[in-house]
Amino acid sequence: MLNYLLRRVLYAIPILLGVNLLTFALFFMVNTPDDMARIHLGAKHVTPEAITRWKTEHGYDKPLFLNDQAPGPGAVTDTLFVEKSLKLFALDFGPADDGRDIAREIKTRMWPSLAIALPTFLVGLLAYLSFALLLVFFRGTALDTAGVVLCVALMSVSGLFYVIGGQYLMGKLWHWFPISGYQPGLEAWKFLLMPVLVSLVAGIGDSARFYRALFVEEIGKDYVRTARAKGLSELRVLFRHVLGNAMIPILTGVVVVIPRLFLGSLIIESFFGIPGLGSYTIDAIQAQDFAIVRSMVFLGSVLYIVGLVLTDLSYTLVDPRVRLE
């Protein structure tokens, strides 16, 4: 177990290095610090001096990967890459390009994100699984066919229409909720419920169909026939045997996203004006704020790797064959 965790941590290092290299390359190979300065300064104020000043102020005045000016090991360490990327390993995010502290922003903004993502995830998982089980219980009947047709139709609608339709119906027509925006404190639920509902409806087609397919595949297996031959009721066969075994592939897709719930949803948050990490990231992308994007990418990767470890751990709970050495 300890060995396993240690190995995962060791394996995470090259992955995170790779992630950093990739984002770094993406931004700086194509977009030099000079370009960034020009964008941030605006067309009117671009002078060579202003660019240099901006770069110094924001810490972009070093070479990218190799500093031939610096002595000794400084040639490698005294560079933008080390300066900007490797500090992330200590979760030192530093200030954003607009000067605000990224870590503080993350701390305040993760709560609204979680407030949407967590209920969506939990209720969604429960609802989708139940719906899929319902279809499977009635498989071969008209109910099953109708359910599958409904799923395919629902998953053929662009998510945008769920958002727009939700806002129009629940916000404008029925006046249930404010169309968008956020307010901390007890009133927050008013703003959170609609995004959660919309996300739930938007996801049902895809997920329920996927789970149904997993169940149907599981039902075709020999051990299910054995369970029936023992005289067990169909419900017991479904819940004890089929669900128990289908949990293994279900967990593969589900557990890995749990840590990422912190990051919120880029799309939902920007649609509904929720000041979470998702909209923070979108704003940063649109403002070309490299410091924030880099931090969020890094955080996303760390959480993904945590998700992979959690997935492995969750296997040990549902599958006795898995042992983490």
Binding site: I15, L16, V19, T23, L26, N31, L266, V297, G300, Y304
Partner: peptide, 19 residues
């Protein structure tokens, strides 16, 4: 694994903006 570990929309968004 490295590519997967970056949140998809984020990677796409960043790349598109660069372009």
């Amino acid at each position: 694994t490295t590519l997967n570990s970056i949140p998809g929309v984020l990677l796409i968004a960043a790349a598109v903006l660069v372009v």
